[in-house]
Design a protein around this nucleic acid. Structure first.
Length: 258
DNA sequence: ATAGGGTTATTT
DNA sequence: AAATAACCCTAT
């Protein structure tokens, strides 16, 4: 797996995800300039963002292991004489694994008004992906998967690396993620005396402040979960329909679902 | 400024 | 040695 040079931190990744969801993939400069992610992505260039996103997308969509489309890479054919100087005739690969039935899943060219944020998300995904033949279902699902990972810090936490970089002691985040993922309101069991004491000293002001923040955060996440759920529902229907080769347009689905 | 191809560097 | 991630270069 990858082991890099200036590895991306979790915060940076999250900022990038959020940025893509907000501004859309491709607006790297905009994302980087956005005051919300600017502090986190200060040391990353727009190109870095693009590259990182490419890596993320590829590893995400490449479920399992993608076909090795790697070019033979004739580095140094010094000692290997070409076995056959004759011309190479490649027979038709016929790798049309996914027989594209008719023109399915064509996106609407100009859709201005978006009835709901969920719907706009789908539209954005299709627009960003810009697949001429209509986006593949897997690709759409991949995009939605992104949203899922954004909400469920769960899968995000699974990829927690930081071998010896930062132990990342973010109680706020862990509490958030656990609540978001399962709704299990578990208090951290490992509160030693010092921490307990510190907590006692914590004044009511800070408490109320934090409580307020948490409430808002929980509410926000709940809303997102709701949206994601219906988003996944929509994705399922899209998948089913497209699998049957049924031609459908976004508006069609939009009128039906929203 | 962005997308894509290609290279370097690290991990397994 | 292969896979992966960051980085680099170039055409549009």
């Amino acid at each position: 797996m990858g082991a890099p040079k200036q590895k991306w931190t979790s915060e940076e990744e999250e900022a990038l995800r959020r940025g893509v969801l907000k501004h859309g993939a491709g607006k790297w400069r905009t994302i980087q300039k956005d005051p919300e992610f600017s502090p986190v992505l200060s040391s990353r260039s727009n190109i870095d963002l693009k590259d990182k996103w490419r890596n993320l997308s590829f590893s995400a969509s490449g479920l399992g292991s993608r076909d090795k489309l790697r070019v033979p890479r004739p580095k140094a054919p010094s000692s290997s004489p070409s076995p056959s100087p004759q011309l190479l005739l490649l027979s038709a690969p016929n790798n049309v694994a996914e027989a594209s039935p008719p023109e399915d899943c064509e996106k609407s060219p100009q859709d201005d008004k978006t009835p709901s944020p969920k719907f706009s998300m789908i539209l954005e995904a299709l627009d960003e992906l810009k697949e001429p033949n209509g986006s593949e279902v897997a690709t759409i699902c991949n995009f939605i998967e992104i949203d899922k990972s954004y909400k469920l810090t769960d899968s995000y936490a699974k990829r927690a690396l930081a071998p010896m970089k930062d132990p990342s002691l973010k109680k706020k985040d862990s509490a958030k993620s656990s609540k978001a993922a399962k709704g299990v309101g578990q208090l951290s069991p490992a509160l030693d005396a010092a921490e307990a004491a510190a907590m006692k000293v914590a004044d009511a002001e800070a408490k109320s402040h934090l409580a307020n923040e948490h409430m808002m955060e929980v509410e926000r996440i709940g809303k997102m979960a709701e949206e994601t759920e219906s988003l996944l529902e929509l994705a399922s229907e899209l998948y089913e329909r497209c699998s049957r080769g049924e031609a459908l347009t976004i508006l069609q689905v939009a009128h039906r679902e929203f």
